[in-house]
């Protein structure tokens, strides 16, 4: 069923409606007509690292995200879950202005990092992205050596003044990403020659090397096998000591394992945010309950 859901809110609804007659799993029509009237739970926190107020996102004429209000607490891992096309990846890309690279995309609302408006006219998205790093769904190492992949951002931002500092930085980043042991003898080999899991950890090392404050992860393990996934989840647990992490995931087990708070998105709206335990054991909203119990999605 996930496959049938398109990326556009309008299409989602129609495909759900047309499918319900064929799929007996979907019990009643009511489940999809549940009113989403503002977010349930605790979207706002005390020590917010990043926060969004009244966030709307449009692709051309189509609205992809409706009025999201959400805080991301300092040094926490927040998981964003929801069916495909619910806007969770789009929202993640709002937080480091990656949507700027899509010409037809328009973001409104108020978004802050440490209280600083990240969409202010004087804010340079390039500098913002150095503070809010990103790890993508598919490992995308550059066609360079492992060393150069990690050193790339550090060189751009002048984080090392000489070669030995750069060496140390690369080594430290690889160690933090749990990759150093495996590649320490092959630092000059191409990064694209690593296995999928290693490539993804290389991308994490690359993001860490820039020393961001927030790391956004867009389904970082969806292309990986369970063992590589476990390695990365352990890694995230260690990273949260120093970084704030927002992770979009399709795996509810992963959300339950790694995150402290979980946000459930549906059709571009933020339905429920709460402590991860609460969301998975005692969801308040009918839609959240249906999703986490596997009735749809």
């Amino acid at each position: 069923m996930t496959d049938l859901i398109g990326t556009l809110p309008g299409m989602v609804k129609s495909s759900l409606e047309s499918e319900e007659n064929k799929l007996p799993v979907v019990e009643t029509r009511d489940e999809f007509d549940v009113e989403i009237s503002g977010t349930i739970g605790k979207p706002l926190v005390q020590n917010a690292k990043m926060s969004s107020r009244n966030c709307d996102v449009f692709y051309g004429d189509k609205q992809a995200i409706f009025n999201i209000n959400l805080d991301i607490g300092k040094n926490e891992i927040i998981a964003m879950i929801g069916p495909s096309g619910c806007g969770k990846s789009t929202y993640l890309r709002v937080l480091n202005r990656m949507n700027d690279t899509i010409p037809i995309c328009r973001v409104t609302g108020e978004h802050t990092l440490d209280g600083e408006d990240i969409y202010a006219a004087e804010q340079d998205p390039v500098l913002l992205r150095a503070r809010v790093g990103m790890v993508f769904q598919k490992p995308n190492p550059f066609p360079k050596s492992i060393y150069d992949n990690v050193a790339y951002g550090a060189k751009l931002h002048g984080l090392a003044t000489n070669r030995s500092e750069l060496d140390d930085l690369v080594e430290a980043s690889l160690i933090k990403a749990g990759l150093f042991k495996e590649v320490k003898d092959d630092l000059l080999m191409p990064g694209t020659g690593l296995s999928g899991g290693q490539q993804q950890r290389l991308c994490i090392a690359r993001a860490i090397a820039v020393d961001p404050e927030v790391i956004l992860m867009d389904e970082p393990t969806s292309a990986l096998d369970p063992i590589a996934t476990a390695t990365i989840e352990e890694l995230m647990d260690e990273l949260k000591e120093n970084y704030t992490i927002a992770i979009v995931t399709h795996s509810m087990q992963q959300a339950a394992r790694v995150s402290q708070r979980t946000a459930y998105f549906h059709l571009g709206k933020l339905v429920e945010v709460n402590d991860t335990n609460t969301v998975f054991t005692n969801p308040e909203h009918k839609l959240t309950e249906n999703y986490i119990t596997g009735r749809f999605g």
Partner: peptide, 23 residues
């Protein structure tokens, strides 16, 4: 994805083109 990876680390457009896209 290659360009996104570079932008995501705070690279400018010209840095991305020179150091990632062209290679």
């Amino acid at each position: 994805a290659m360009r996104d990876g570079s932008y995501g680390m705070g690279a400018t457009k010209s840095e991305t083109i020179r150091q990632v896209v062209i290679p």
